[in-house]
């Protein structure tokens, strides 16, 4: 009973939304790590797309999956060597 009354007045969001949020984040990282091919394929596809417009230094390029408390982010650091002249 005490528990139920406390729940009526509680200010925290229900704990299940924390469970869902935390799982979502942790699985982003788990899945990326387990399929180690994923980051490699992603890297190559990004190089292919960008190279149409700019010349990049593939050696120095760096892609990482980072996360904060609230979200996961894909961080790419891609040094540009030269910008191509895009045809009109």
């Amino acid at each position: 009973m005490g528990l139920e009354i406390k729940k009526l007045f509680r200010e925290d969001p229900p704990s299940k939304s924390q469970a869902v949020e935390r799982l979502r984040l942790v699985l982003i990282h788990d899945r990326a790590k387990v399929s180690s091919g994923l980051m490699e394929v992603l890297r190559e596809e990004i190089i292919k797309a960008i190279s149409k417009y700019v010349e990049i230094d593939e050696e120095q390029m760096d892609i990482e999956l980072n996360s904060t408390e609230k979200q996961a982010e894909l961080v790419a650091n891609i040094p540009v060597v030269k910008v191509r002249r895009v045809l009109d």
């Binding site: 704990s15 299940k16 939304s17």
Partner: peptide, 16 residues
């Protein structure tokens, strides 16, 4: 617990 929002329900886990 599901009713009180303290347990993930079938839809939550299905989504994940």
């Amino acid at each position: 617990m599901i009713k009180n929002g303290d347990m993930m329900d079938v839809d939550d886990i299905n989504d994940i």
